[in-house]
């Protein structure tokens, strides 16, 4: 009997090794190649510790948060087609952040909090519009909410001419110009979310058999569903508030992890955060090096990977229905 924790430890070790590899690769790639032997000599030392490493740290926590959020959305809504970006949760957070930038001065910590509120409002709207939590309806509701929230963001852009460029770049999703401070805040979000979700992972397992089965096993389904959705939105908000709307990490990661490590959420929840981190660190390394010395927003890379994957899932699902 392969126990879930055997899979978890095995998968954890494998993914950690991959993450370390990704970190080394990302540290090395970019406008300036850093030879590993001279990492402690200037100017490489400054580039590595002041520019590359904070960026990698941010990539790790943002990717982890998005991968984890995607796993939870897909688990609770029982469809592989859900992710924070598609559901409009990211847009909700983004719109809230955009509105906050209109206020000339707001406290630093208000940013993720505002983003959280925005994401919850977006999610509520999606549920209100879809009426029934069926995959197709949720996706269409997500499109509706996305377009409305997109309009809010565009409006904010038009009004605030001076930092337009900054907002646009943030919206496209990027890990640049941020530091350990931002990564630290998201890391706190991530830690809280990860611990709680891991503790309740068995409830998600039970719920995947349908509400009746979960209820009869003693799971308080309605309470747990709200809790899971809140936590996933909380994670999304944390990621969006500093790194913008990076799409499709939450879509691709859960599917791939599930394919390799099975269906148990006690395994999937920790591993999908690791896999999310790996994906985003890799994607950011690519974003920095493809057009070097120019940079692409990392959201462009994830969309290049994620949108075809979304199409694949959609087609496959259509065939099975």
């Amino acid at each position: 009997m392969k126990s879930w924790w055997v899979k978890l430890i095995f998968g954890g070790v494998v993914l950690l090794l991959l993450l370390i590899f990704a970190i080394f690769l990302a540290a090395n790639l970019g406008a300036v190649k850093i030879p590993l032997t001279q990492i402690l000599t200037e100017p490489y030392k400054t580039i590595f510790f002041k520019i590359r490493l904070p960026r990698i740290a941010l990539g790790i926590v943002v990717g982890a948060a998005l991968g984890l959020a995607g796993t939870v959305y897909q688990g609770v809504l029982k469809t592989p087609l859900a992710d924070p970006y598609i559901l409009g949760v990211s847009s909700g957070a983004a719109a809230a952040v955009a509105l906050l930038t209109l206020l000339k001065s707001f406290p630093y910590y208000a940013l993720p909090l505002g983003a959280f509120l925005g994401s919850i409002v977006a999610l509520l709207l999606v549920f209100l519009i879809s009426r029934k939590p069926e995959p197709n309806r949720l996706i269409l509701a997500g499109i509706i909410v996305n377009s409305f929230l997109g309009a809010i963001v565009t409006f904010v852009l038009a009004v605030s001419r001076e930092n337009m460029h900054q907002i646009i770049y943030w919206l496209m999703g990027g890990l640049n110009n941020k530091g350990f401070k931002e990564a630290g805040v998201i890391a706190l979000y991530l830690l809280l979310g990860l611990v709680l979700l891991f503790v309740f992972a068995r409830d998600l397992n039970a719920m995947s058999f349908g509400d009746d089965t979960a209820v009869q096993l003693g799971v308080e389904v309605n309470k747990k569903r709200v809790l899971f959705l809140m936590l996933a939105s909380f994670l999304t908000a944390g990621a969006v508030s500093f790194a913008g709307t990076i799409g499709f990490v939450g879509l691709v990661v859960p599917q791939v992890v599930e394919l390799i490590f099975g269906k148990d959420y006690r395994v999937l929840i920790p591993l999908s955060s690791l896999a999310g981190a790996i994906l985003l660190v890799f994607a950011d390394a690519l974003a920095r090096s493809i057009l070097a010395p120019a940079e692409l927003p990392v959201g462009v890379i994830t969309a290049f990977i994620g949108a075809p994957f979304f199409a694949y899932l959609f087609i496959r699902r259509g065939r099975h229905a």
Binding site: F209, K263, D264
Partner: peptide, 25 residues
């Protein structure tokens, strides 16, 4: 214990994991 009608969409758990869920309570 209550055994409902089978849901339309199934997550493809193993037999062991499925039965182990009965130990949840």
């Amino acid at each position: 214990a209550y055994v409902p009608q089978e849901p339309e969409t199934l997550r493809d758990y193993s037999v062991w994991d499925t039965v182990m869920m009965g130990r949840y309570p």
